[in-house]
Computed example of a mutant assay.
Amino acid sequence: MSPFLSLEGKRALIISGTRGAGKATVSLFRQLGARILTTARTKTSDISDEEFLAADLTTLKGCADLVDAVRTRLGGVDVIVHMLGGFIVARRRLRCTGRRALARGNRSQPDACHSPRSRIGAGDG
């Protein structure tokens, strides 16, 4: 009998996967056979170094580091699960361009990029 759902061979980026629902998502995707990369500001002991990138995605550098890690570690991405929440996401509409992150709204907040998909591209090597 085949499993109801399989992610065997899929490459998954799980943003903010070290606590709560993000941590549960990492665990589920592992069980379903996905190769995962997760990111947060700090690493927990249950995530391997290869599966984790310490990055602050409220900064352009953190976003650029994430794009590089997806390309080098996974060779692209098939599935993105965006678990990041909090003030910045709730307060502003964000978009990411190839050159810089643009934030609409409160200009006193740092620029942020919460949509690396536009620069990663599924299957990019």
Rank of each mutant, 00 (worst) to 15 (best):
G121R: 00
D65T: 05
V89Y: 04
A40F: 03
G33E: 07
I120V: 11
I88A: 10
G85H: 07
S6P: 02
H114V: 15
M1G: 13
L37N: 08
A34N: 02
K61T: 10
V70G: 03
I120C: 02
V81Q: 04
A40L: 08
R92L: 12
A101N: 09
S6W: 07
L94M: 11
R104P: 00
L74W: 14
R107E: 14
M83G: 06
R19V: 07
G98Q: 09
R35G: 01
L7C: 12
K43Y: 03
L60F: 15
H82R: 14
G75H: 07
A101I: 06
A54F: 01
L94Q: 06
T44R: 13
F29W: 08
S45D: 14
E51V: 01
M83I: 11
A21Q: 15
R117M: 03
R41T: 14
I15W: 02
D124Q: 01
D65W: 06
R117I: 09
G98I: 02
G98V: 08
G86Q: 13
L5G: 07
R91L: 12
R107T: 12
D56N: 14
Q109D: 05
S16F: 09
A122W: 01
G20T: 07
I120A: 04
C113N: 09
G98P: 09
A103R: 07
A103D: 05
